[in-house]
Design a binder for these strands. Structure first.
Lengths: 227, 227
DNA sequence: TCATTGTATGGACGATTGTCCATTTACATG
DNA sequence: CATGTAAATGGACAATCGTCCATACAATGA
């Protein structure tokens, strides 16, 4: 009934050409709708019907644009992953060059409202869980994986070296990286589970307290309060 | 065809009475099968058909024993939660009474093969994710929740007091508890994601290194090596 | 031994899943 | 304006979902 009208009012404000720009917009719309459905309903209940309802598009569009629903989910994961890494890279470039400033930037990025919010945390959790029976997701649900792990490892190496702990630097840096990543993972999980009670500032303070005990010369709790 | 035979050979070895013991066994069998299905397939694909296939029972049994599939999942979560807490309590009783020994016991419990294994971690993850659209699960997927949080909080209070840091003890203990739980959460997530590469000993060492930096008088890395 | 009771079976049911395609719509080009 | 091509629609389809029930079975008490 009103489907066509909705589509027109949504994507063709006046009388602009539909063709390619509209096709791209619909493609993006499906991805956004999938993110929303995953967030609202979880992977188990994010059906084709629920996705197209949110996209306000017709049933066949998923097949037309993505071939299958599985593929749509994979592309959605890819989209989310790229957004995460792009924003992270921006944050790292804006921050100062010193290791402590870089680490600080990573913490603030990962706990910022742009990254750690109700929708994205839910989607991230659901897509991770789905890796088991949708192996192709693994490559795109790699938030906080090898790339970031390597960056952190080298940052911590530098920080450890300033203490002159040459002997066990390698192993120490590995352990610190491992623990730091686990800590950040845990923060996200805590946000997921206690969305109402979660205090962003407390989370930041805990992480900086952790960093402070490890590197008392480089970190203090004032870092947790800055945006 | 062979359904009856399977059932008999499984639950009635010789000619024992079926009645109540068998009913209980079938009930337990369904719960175990649900755990297996959740682990193998995830919540999204753990259908009634897949569960009864693993339990080697007939379709109607779920309705008979649990009323609905949703209820079976809830009872399964309850079962898993009770098992986790019962084992944790045993570990805490076996360990020495000092705060550092109690914390150590918690770490070793949470990273032991009995608790942190392929099946249980998968189930834990899936059930947590399902809380969103199955609210009743929340009360039984509370692994590492308020109960454990309180225990840890008081243990860390005691440890902090020995340093004479009376002023900020409360806030410090909260932060430490928060960070510690996040760290353990993250370890589980890491196990989930990198099951092949995960090194139990590395995880233990990282946690103990974390504790050592916080409480250098009470913890050292030798604790990480003991079973 | 026969009736009763509780347990177990497996197929039927409507609802919903993801896929696909015949059809319609709308734009770009001749 | 007419024609061709790409985009979008929404219903048809088989498969599967969870629920439920008529039936069968097995053990117990009279």
């Amino acid at each position: 009934m009103g489907h066509k009208d909705h589509h027109q009012t949504k994507f063709i404000p006046s009388n602009a050409p539909t063709s390619r720009t509209a096709k791209f917009k619909n493609r993006q719309g499906l991805i956004e709708a999938t993110l929303q459905a995953l967030s609202d309903l979880g992977y188990a209940n994010a059906s084709v019907s629920e996705i197209i309802k949110r996209a306000r598009l017709s049933r066949g569009m998923i097949h037309l644009h993505f071939g299958s629903k599985d593929n749509l989910v994979i592309e959605t994961a890819k989209h989310a992953s790229e957004r995460y890494h792009a924003f992270l890279e921006t944050c790292l470039k804006c921050a100062g060059p010193s290791p402590q400033e870089q680490v600080e930037a990573i913490v603030k990025h990962d706990l910022s409202e742009d990254v750690l919010n109700a929708t994205s945390v839910r989607v991230w959790y659901e897509l991770r869980g789905a890796i088991y029976f949708q192996k192709e997701l693994a490559s795109y649900s790699d938030t906080r994986d090898e790339r970031l792990r390597n960056v952190l490892f080298h940052l911590f190496i530098q920080l450890l070296e300033t203490y002159g702990l040459k002997e066990a630097t390698q192993e120490n840096a590995e352990d610190v990286t491992f623990a730091f990543l686990a800590l950040m993972e845990g923060m996200w999980t805590d946000y997921l589970l206690h969305q109402n009670g979660f205090q962003r500032e407390n989370a930041k303070r805990s992480v900086f307290r952790f960093l402070q005990t490890l590197f008392p010369d480089h970190f203090d709790l004032t870092g947790a309060k800055l945006t």
